[in-house]
Design a protein around this nucleic acid. Structure first.
Lengths: 235, 235
DNA sequence: TAGCTTACTGTGGTCAGACCACACAAATCC
DNA sequence: GGATTTGTGTGGTCTGACCACAGTAAGCTA
């Protein structure tokens, strides 16, 4: 497979334009027919390249005309990572447990770092996290709504690291195992008890961060994640 | 963009077969024409799905006949992550510095964990890492060969975590910024001095792990990574 | 019968062309 | 001026033709 495929040539040209600043997030690629003519290839090859760019979270396509039509350049790095994780989980190459472990790594590091910054008298805005936990206290929350807010809370924790790559990886891991988590939660017998415990643990994590206790925050989030997955049998 | 694309339908069908165990790593997808007929779609749509699977590190395609022809199912989760990072770096959405930071997170955690296990009297095989550092001592090593061995060493450090997801992410980050690192190293004036220092730092990291000093190992790898990127101006 | 050569088959790769639905903008009509 | 129609460029999908390739099977020769 040493020969370069035509669609890969197309991708290389597009990458050049990105690196040169001719293309950027919020802009649009020229139409498929124009690219095909410009690069001297068939439209099918252009389309293949476009599909890869979609999978990479780089573009979003739409038919029609006007500003939303065509291939708009976007920035969603978590999506391809999530997709890759999902595929490799499906093929059984990646164990779910390793994703759990990687989550522990990221979130414990993130909350510890945030707590340390609090301890160093730095201002950290925890209001979004607090608001989310308040929303999670709604009494008639369905399991899936609970899980969605739970995921959001954990993404906020990861974002405390202030590192887009780490946040993207974290978001991707949540999305990649979403189906497993949803199925497992559906099988939990006493969901109310579990949800109440999760809520309490969330509060504990956030309190440790707000108090600048990095070690406590790290231990709390580790126990929280491991406990959830142990109880639900995921990983 | 609510309508599902035909190629996405094809992907969904293939994912089902993976989850059902009908397909697996080392096996082969049926030919494009067969899939097109089976799923009732055009071959072009099948090809688009195949391109996405290639980008996801799930398959490798080859023309011809025989066991290596067609779409062979592989397991390379790092490749799509690396590709995604590369694309999002090119679009300037992800800062290189965040990849550096994420590397610090992963490697410091990994070496600390390994050192702690050594301290707990667990056997860890550090011979591959040692052999690599020996290879890096070759006097006539070119910059690019040095960097390749350097990357391998760091992947070994990440693999000490014993977590495939973490290793894949780490490998992906190395690959995703490879071009930036190579260009920066080409610009280093006193490469011999830098290479000698890097070699020494590698030895220090490995010694701390072997001695079970988790804190030292973590600090050493953090200083090593940050120092390299500061000196080369990457991130 | 064994070894070499040729033909066949299925594979992915690429191209060209036709047609569709769509979304917006411009032109036309009332 | 507002409503309707037309035009245009967009991506989406399909069909069919042809190519190069890699292995296997069949045929031929010593």
């Amino acid at each position: 497979m040493a020969a370069t495929r035509t669609y890969q040539l197309v991708l290389a040209r597009i990458e050049e334009d990105l690196l040169a600043g001719k293309l950027g997030v919020g802009g649009r690629l020229p139409g498929e027919r124009i690219l095909a003519e410009r690069y001297g290839v068939s439209r099918a090859s252009v389309r293949e390249a476009i599909k890869v760019l979609e999978a990479m979270g780089m573009i979003r396509t739409a038919v029609g005309s006007g500003p939303e039509a065509g291939a708009v350049i976007i920035a969603e790095p978590a999506a391809p990572i999530a997709m890759a994780l999902r595929w490799h989980l499906a093929s059984r190459h990646l164990p779910v447990g390793d994703i759990v472990g990687a989550r522990v790594l990221i979130e414990s590091w993130s909350v510890a770092g945030a707590a340390d910054r609090v301890a160093g008298a730095e201002e950290i805005d925890l209001r979004p996290a607090t608001a989310l936990l308040d929303a999670m206290d709604a009494p008639e929350l369905s399991r899936s709504d609970f899980l969605a807010l739970d995921a959001d809370f954990h993404v906020i924790l990861a974002e405390l690291a202030g590192n887009i790559v780490v946040s993207a990886v974290m978001t991707a891991m949540r999305q990649g195992i979403h189906a497993y988590v949803t199925a497992a939660v559906d099988r939990v017998a006493d969901w109310e008890e579990m949800a109440a415990r999760l809520r309490g643990e969330h509060r504990g994590i956030l309190a440790a961060v707000a108090a600048g206790r990095g070690g406590d925050a790290s231990l709390a989030v580790t126990a929280h994640i491991n406990g959830f997955y142990t109880d639900t049998g995921v990983g």
